[in-house]
Amino acid sequence: MSQTIVIAEIAKGAIHPTTAELVTAANALGSAPIVIVPCTDSTIADAAGSIQGISKVIALKSDIFAEYDASGWATAIDAVAPSGIIITSANPQSKDLAARLAARRNISVVQDVVAIEGGNLVSPIYSGKAMQTVSLAGDAAVSVRANIFAASPQGASADVSVVDATGDMATAVEEFLARASTRLDVAEANIIISGGRGMGSPDNFSHLEKIADTIGAAVGASRAAVDTWEPISHAMQVGQTGKTVNPNLYIAVGISGAIQHLAGMRSSKYIVAINKDADAPIFQHADYGIVATWEEALPVLQASLSAMMN
């Protein structure tokens, strides 16, 4: 069996829980991975050592990990990772890194893996309208979608070694542009409530925001909402030309369920649809569908969720 190498997912200066899902994927490919933690502060790597099913942790410490730079990161990680199958998360930055690492090693990359069946990798193609199963002959870089593999449990105490890395940044961040809104980003959220043209006006998104605040969700939007209403920013757009999201729960309100919207959210674990048209295509993908206007349904949803959270 090939050696596997998991590149830990870091968010807000800590190991992101997705990392334990990547370990499960590595185990499914047949081996206990080495977990590489790209970091500026090596103490954050200790948390990775407690994930069961790994062989060891390398805290790869360097100032270059303060900001993402594809070239610098790939050079530094390549220098410490043994040959084998490299596994990253499938968010945009990690997919970029996986592609860089693969090219650096002249190996193939398989992105957005959602299942591993007998060593073969399954990923969506044509925006999820079909699935592709491939076999690997040799090393590869593989990115794995979040919220699909079960997280490997805690409780181990693997060896953590610290390695100092050096690397050159090929790009430079000039200025951080804070988001116009301080709301949670759809790409980082476990629960998303999205509004479409059926919301009628951008002001009505305040109803979605209220629910989002109650349950810790991000607010998303369809392209029709983004293109029609200036205050609804492209950063909120889910779909083919927006973000691909994989939350535990996706609530679509006043969204018809066009194929390009589905492309961005159909792999969500649970989907709730609220739409006044019983024939809207979104209902074919919903675990829970409510045929009603949002004016009717959202106040009830808000009240029930608030009661639960208290």
């Binding site: 309208k129 569908g289 004016e295």
Partner: peptide
């Protein structure tokens, strides 16, 4: 170094539950 084994249609989701009327939002919650 990669071979395609197959293409397939995505597994169809079991039909969900559908409710009429906004009051059902309480049950869905």
């Amino acid at each position: 170094s990669i071979s395609i084994i197959s293409h397939s249609l995505p597994p169809s989701k079991p039909a969900g539950k559908t409710y009429e009327g906004g009051a059902a939002a309480a049950e869905v919650a």
